[in-house]
């Protein structure tokens, strides 16, 4: 149900943090993390996941396969 940040690639630039419509991103130990329970994959807000679109390092904000994909409430 969420995106995750690949820790080793994150430059800690903080660009993603203010773009997240759900306040799901925060700094932790010098890198940034996504709280899976808050991330909606931007569904309901924007066409594209904002963290992916703004992140300067390709393939750093990626789908977290360990949790089920987000389902928008109907």
């Amino acid at each position: 149900m969420a995106y995750k940040i690949i820790n080793s690639q994150c430059t800690a630039c903080a660009a993603c943090e203010p773009e997240c419509p759900n306040n799901a991103i925060r700094e932790k130990d010098g890198t940034f993390i996504i709280k899976p329970e808050k991330c909606t994959e931007c569904i309901g807000y924007f066409d594209d996941p904002q963290c992916v679109a703004v992140c300067p390092v390709e393939n750093t904000c990626v789908i977290d396969n360990s949790v089920p994909r987000y389902q928008a409430a109907v």
Partner: peptide
């Protein structure tokens, strides 16, 4: 201000 809103080919933001 480490965040940026564009990417330049001469920049590596690491």
């Amino acid at each position: 201000a480490p965040a940026c809103n564009i990417q330049c080919n001469y920049c590596n933001r690491k």
